[in-house]
Simulated assay, not measured.
Amino acid sequence: MSGKQRWLPDQHGAWAMLAVPFLAGTFLAPRPTWWQLALFGAWLLGYVAAFHAQQWLRLRRNSRNPRAAGRHVRPAQAFGAAFALLALPLAWRFPWLLAAAAAAAPFLAVTTWHAARNRERALLNGLAAVVPACGMLLVALRLGGGDPADGWRPALACLLYFGGTVPYVKTMIRERRSRAYHRASVGYHAAALAVAAWLSPWLAVPFGLYLVRAVLMPRRRPKVAVVGAVEVVASAALLTALLLVF
C-alpha cells in the first residue's frame, strides 16, 4: 500500500458528497469570505480524521492482524491536529458553528457505530453520512452572510441526489443482481424527480437524467471506473444546476 493510500481514504464517492453541497452554499452566499475556505479545509480534514479513527476502531475490534488498526493512528492524529488548528479559530470567531457541529454529532455516532461493527456498507450508514454533508450547504451559506432559511431548497436537492446515490451504487456493485434493490432505487429516483421538479421545474432536467441512469446503468453492468466517472459528471451537473437555479 502506497503512502497516499495509507493517508487518504479510498472512498472516492465521498469527496463529491463533501464538496458539492459546501461549494453550492459558498457560491450562493451573498458575501463569500475567506472564512469559508478555512471552514472547507476544516471540513475535509475532519472527515479524514474521523475516517481513520473509525477504521482504527473497526480493525481493532474485527481484524485478526494486530498491526492493521495501528496504521490508522498516525493519520488520525495528524489530521485531527490539523483540523483543530482550523476549527478552533472558526469556533472562536463564529460560536454558532458549535451548534452546527452538535447537530451533526448524532450522524457521526451512527457511522461510528456501524464502523465498529464492520457494517459500513449498510444502507443506514450511507444515508447517515449524507445528511450532515448536505447540511453543510446551510452552514457555508450562513458563513457567507446568507440566511439558512433561503438555502433549504438547494440543500434538499443535494439530499435528494446524494441520498439516491446510496442505493444506486449498491445496484451497480454489491447488489447488482438484486431486482428488489433495482426496483427500490428506480422508485426512489422517480420520487426524487417529482420532489425536485416541485422545488424548481429546471431541476427536473438533471433529476430526470439521474432517473434514466438508475434504470439503465445496472443493466449494462459497466466497470467500477465507469460508474465513478458517471458520478463525477452527475455531481458536477448538480452543482451547476443549483448555481443556475438558485
Rank of each mutant, 00 (worst) to 15 (best):
K4F: 14
K4D: 04
R6W: 04
D10K: 10
Q11P: 01
G13P: 04
G13M: 11
A14D: 07
A16C: 09
P21Y: 08
F22G: 11
G25A: 00
L28V: 07
A29G: 00
R31Q: 13
P32R: 02
T33L: 06
T33G: 12
W34F: 14
Q36C: 12
F40M: 13
A42E: 09
W43P: 02
L44V: 14
G46H: 05
V48A: 11
Q54F: 10
Q55G: 10
L59F: 07
R60E: 09
R61N: 10
N62P: 00
R64E: 15
R64Q: 14
P66Y: 10
P66E: 04
R67Y: 12
R67Q: 14
R67C: 02
R67E: 14
A68Q: 10
A69C: 02
A69K: 00
A69V: 04
V73H: 08
V73A: 15
R74K: 12
P75E: 04
F79A: 05
G80E: 03
A82M: 13
F83E: 02
F83I: 00
A84T: 11
A84G: 05
L88N: 10
A91E: 09
W92T: 11
W92C: 06
W96G: 03
L97T: 11
L98P: 06
L98A: 13
A100M: 11
A100C: 14
A100V: 12
P106I: 07
P106A: 06
P106G: 06
F107R: 04
F107A: 03
L108S: 10
T112W: 15
W113C: 05
R119G: 08
E120A: 10
E120F: 07
R121L: 06
L124D: 09
L124A: 15
A128R: 08
A128Q: 08
V130W: 07
V130H: 05
P132C: 07
C134G: 05
C134Y: 08
L138R: 03
L138V: 08
L141I: 00
G145K: 03
G145Y: 03
D147Y: 11
D147A: 13
D147N: 15
P148L: 01
D150I: 01
D150E: 14
D150Y: 05
P154T: 03
C158Y: 08
L159A: 13
Y161A: 11
G163F: 01
G164Y: 00
V166W: 03
T171Y: 01
T171G: 08
M172K: 12
I173H: 12
R174K: 15
R174A: 14
E175D: 12
R176F: 07
R183F: 12
V186P: 11
G187I: 07
A191G: 12
A191K: 03
A191E: 05
A192V: 00
A194Y: 00
V195Q: 00
W202E: 09
W202R: 11
A204W: 00
A204P: 04
V205A: 14
P206I: 07
P206G: 06
L209Q: 02
L209A: 12
Y210I: 02
Y210A: 01
Y210S: 00
L211A: 09
V212L: 15
V212I: 15
R213F: 10
A214E: 03
R219N: 06
R220I: 15
V224M: 07
A225I: 10
V226L: 12
A229W: 15
V230G: 01
E231N: 11
A236K: 10
L238G: 00
F246R: 03
